[in-house]
């Protein structure tokens, strides 16, 4: 009992089990049509088929890899751009509203244009994932750098730090929590956009699999594949949390 009290993250488990039990009962008793929502046991039962016949592991790896590549590029480009917006106020005044606007725009709707320009391939999907991920990384990096307490910078300067050394030793670690909020947001929107594109253009990993299964009315298997999209998202979340803790322990 004590262990439960000290781990509030586990408090959701009873509700999850209750929800799944209700779903199972609803489908079995005929309150929910099986063609719309599958019973959890039916979803689990489709796992061997997904692995053996639908190359599930390869598809998970592909979606994970594409999202990872898009997010890595977004970090590589977004952190320096966010720093530049913080450092050069004129640049910030010129471009901030553009970044905010692009962040609010449904960029995925540009996919036909990207298909025409770059072709129906994995590069195009990665590029579109990058485009949506880079915006929160840029904005949150700028916000994080703006929020560094001036006294911490003064401490760094009093120890004769300047330029890149001041950035790495003081500004960056101080801004890490906010920058990582941007990275997490970027990863989530990138994953959503990549799976949506895989679904729409029918290439790639889990998005394509979900599309295939939906067209074949394999409802239970389709929910299984959706579950793995959620699993990828959770994996990224845990990974970023670990990296953040490593970069900035408290």
């Amino acid at each position: 009992m004590k262990a439960w009290l000290h781990r509030p993250a586990l408090w959701v488990l009873p509700f999850l089990v209750l929800g799944l039990a209700a779903q199972e009962a609803g489908v079995r008793l005929g309150f929910i049509p099986q063609v719309m929502i599958a019973a959890p046991t039916a979803i689990l039962g489709k796992m061997p088929m997904l692995v053996a016949e639908e190359e599930l592991l390869e598809r998970i790896g592909l979606t994970f890899g594409l999202t990872f590549a898009a997010a890595a590029l977004a970090i590589l480009a977004g952190v320096p751009v966010g720093w530049a917006l913080h450092r050069f106020r004129l640049l910030n005044r010129a471009y901030e509203s553009w970044f905010v606007g692009l962040g609010a725009a449904p960029l995925i709707l540009l996919y036909p244009l990207f298909l025409v320009m770059f072709g129906r391939n994995l590069f195009t999907i990665t590029l579109m994932g990058f485009m949506v991920a880079v915006i929160p990384v840029v904005l949150k990096t700028r916000e994080g750098m703006d929020g560094v307490r001036p006294v911490l910078i003064a401490v760094g300067k009093s120890f004769k730090l300047s330029g890149l050394r001041l950035f790495w030793k003081v500004q960056f670690p101080a801004a890490v929590p906010v920058i990582f909020t941007g990275i997490r947001l970027g990863l989530i929107v990138s994953l959503i956009n990549i799976v949506a594109l895989e679904f729409l253009v029918n290439i790639g990993g889990l998005g394509r699999l979900i599309n295939d299964l939906a067209e074949r009315f394999e409802t239970a298997a389709m929910y299984g594949a959706i579950g793995f999209v959620v699993a990828i998202s959770v994996t990224f979340f845990v990974l970023t949390e670990r990296i953040e803790l490593w970069l900035r322990p408290k």
Binding site: V151, F159, P173
Partner: peptide, 24 residues
């Protein structure tokens, strides 16, 4: 310099804070 505001680095332990200028 010792500053008026709280100026320890929150991501460093006490000893790591003290060792900071030596690391630099």
């Amino acid at each position: 310099m010792v500053f008026q505001e709280e100026s320890t680095f929150p991501w460093r332990t006490t000893i790591e804070n003290i060792a900071f200028p030596l690391e630099v």
